[in-house]
Design a protein around this nucleic acid. Structure first.
Length: 565
RNA sequence: GACCUGGUAGCUCAGUUGGUAGAGCACCUCCCUUUUAAGGAGGUGGUCCUGGGUUCGAGCCCCAGCCCGGUCACCA
């Protein structure tokens, strides 16, 4: 491993600490007596009192025999004051002159014991009397400074570095931590709301033999012992409904779902959906519940129902308008598409500039129409209701119009936040709808649904009328924290693997150089030219292929070696 | 998948018609006992994303590729 000069210095400091008899990674518990947030919030009560704190040293101002440093613990940051004669026990002032000034660095984790006080200029500080090294940091952190005016200098802002090394992002960018704390507040708020109603939080399979409950391309894997394919779930809907069949009145799950599709700033291959199913309810009830829930979530996470989302101020205060989708299309395009067939719909699409193709059925056409002409208009929370049957295979037929279903999507800031139905519980109708989906598959829609026979069997035993909802948690967190990228609300968003610099041995380099000159070449020629012994040749070429530097091809003309990617 | 930006020191970024690779912070040495983007003096540090090409000479121009980001397509 190639170390930078800064890293070498830190490793030398580590060694010198050991030589002084200081363990840079001590095992003992370090008992703290306060948190920085507490001290700052109740300064008068702490002033003059002794505290023990632990945290990371984020900056240092050394002024001869005294220094100031910034200590950051999990709760906040505060200044500490370190005086040579206060922390050193010997005449040389080793603890100060050598340990603190020379061997410690920004980023080191230390424990301090000292008295709370206020400096001449009024900064709340701790006058350190004892300093303990708790963990030496071997890599330099990005240096971010904040001016007196709150202006941040040299912010650690490179998105790639921030996502790949989220731990660094969390250390130096305090607002990032706030986002994730808020994320947990949001999910806690939802759990609290449901648990108070005695809804049961459950867990259902992530590895599924049939990926059902949504239309999306799944990730496929393989179980060795069973020798069968398994899929990572794209939704958990069909399993939660089985539990409603089993007699639970209300079940919910925060479900990590996986979809093998494109990635952009609103899509990550793994994401979180909260799905809830409540027996004996319908989608009207579900809209009422959703309004109530989201207003509470906004209050719990932000203290107000008003949330700034980009340029828009969005209010989650209930109630929200309810607009049938065909009505929305009429409002925004002027076309009444109710009852139209496929060809008529395609005409309308063409007139309003929506691209169509052969695989699109009525459902997809209406969805496209809504998506491109209406969706972006709904900034304030709005329930779009009564979707056409073709695009909702798991939804109960509308009680007063057989062409529609009892479904709603909740639009916020022009994006879908939730999707809910009066669930289809007629097993015969459900089987027919699945078969419709199968036809779509044959037509070329690779995202149409699979048929889950066991789910149909469950429905045949009888499922009570039920309403269900799925809420996109990542999106909800994006709204509540005013982030426009899903990567900002996931600790570890999916990234392409970093390319690692592959290190080669001398033998490997020699073969690599021969190969570079004439790839591909006959394996035997390469072996001869390398001049290696049989054993050495075998090990070297195997290591090269393992590292994907070389590739062996068995062709009719013989064994060839070529450069890998 | 298509198009557009970008990739230079540990971090944030400059880099002129193609002519010795720069700044601030960080780091190292020294001074400094209530400072705060601490200050003062001096110094170290580079695979200019990778590989080709053009050229006497490439961080810069050309070609191919890699990676991040953005826009679009896709995502009921």
């Amino acid at each position: 491993m190639q170390l930078s000069p800064l890293e070498i210095i830190r490793r030398e400091s580590l060694q010198k600490l050991r030589e002084l008899g200081i363990n840079p990674y001590p095992a003992e518990e370090f008992k703290t007596t306060a948190t920085i947030k507490d001290i700052l919030a109740n300064f008068d009560a702490f002033e003059g009192k002794e505290v023990v704190l632990a945290g990371r040293m984020m900056s240092r101002r050394i002024m001869g025999k005294a220094s100031f440093a910034e200590l950051k613990d999990a709760s906040g940051r505060m200044q500490i004051y370190i005086n040579r004669d206060e922390i050193s026990s010997d005449d040389e002032g080793t603890m100060y002159n050598t340990v603190f000034k020379k061997l410690l660095d920004m980023g080191d984790i230390i424990g301090i014991k000292g008295d709370v006080f206020k400096t001449k200029v009024g900064e709340e500080s701790v006058n350190v009397k004892e300093l303990t090294v708790l963990s030496k940091s071997l890599r330099p952190l990005p240096v971010v400074k904040t001016g007196a005016d709150g202006k941040v200098h040299d912010a650690f802002s490179d998105a790639e570095l921030r996502y790949r090394q989220r731990y660094v992002d969390l250390i130096v960018n305090d607002h990032v931590k706030e986002t994730f704390i808020k994320r947990t507040k949001i999910t806690n708020s939802i759990r609290d709301f449901f648990n108070k109603r005695n809804y049961l939080e459950v867990e259902t399979p992530i590895l599924q033999p049939i990926p059902g409950g949504a239309a999306a391309r799944p990730f496929k894997t393989h179980h060795n012992a069973l020798d069968m394919p398994l899929y990572l779930r794209i939704a958990n809907e069909l399993y939660l409904k089985r539990l409603i069949v089993g007699g639970f009145d209300a079940v919910y799950e925060f479900s990590k779902d996986f979809r093998n599709e494109g990635m952009d700033r609103t899509h990550n291959p793994e994401f979180t959906v909260m799905e809830l199913y409540v027996a004996y309810k319908d989608y009207h009830w579900m809209m009422n519940m959703t309004e109530e829930l989201l207003e509470k979530v906004a209050m719990d996470s932000n203290g107000t129902p008003e949330v700034q989302i980009g340029e828009n101020m969005v209010s989650f205060k209930a109630p929200y308008p309810r607009v049938p989708i065909l009505e929305a299309i009429k409002i925004h395009t002027g076309f009444d598409v109710a009852g139209m067939g496929e060809n008529e719909l395609k005409e309308v699409c063409k007139k309003v500039g929506v691209a169509v193709d052969e695989t699109m059925g009525i459902g997809k056409l209406i969805d496209e129409l809504f998506g491109s002409t209406c969706e972006h208009h709904y900034i304030q929370p709005t329930f779009i209701t009564d979707y056409p049957k073709e695009m909702s295979p798991l939804t109960k037929e509308h009680r007063s119009n057989p062409a529609l279903t009892e479904r709603f999507e909740l639009m916020v800031n022009g994006k879908e936040l939730a999707n809910a139905y009066s669930e289809l519980n007629d097993p015969i109708e459900q089987r027919a709808r699945f078969e419709e989906q199968l036809k779509l598959t044959e037509k070329g829609d690779d995202e149409a649904m699979f048929i889950d026979q066991d789910f149909l069997r469950a429905l045949e035993y009888g499922m009570p009328p039920t309403s269900g909802i799925g809420i996109g948690i990542d999106r909800l967190v994006m709204f509540m924290t005013n982030n426009s990228s899903i990567q900002e609300v996931l600790f570890f968003p999916q990234m392409r693997p970093e390319k690692k610099a592959v290190e080669m041995s001398e033998d490997e380099k020699a073969i690599f150089n021969i190969l570079k000159a004439n790839s591909p070449m006959l394996l035997n020629d390469l072996k001869t030219q390398s001049g290696l012994s049989n054993k050495k040749w075998d090990k070297t070429i195997k290591d090269l292929t393992k590292k994907n530097i070389a590739k062996i091809n068995n062709t009719e003309e013989g064994l060839f070696v070529e450069l890998g990617k």
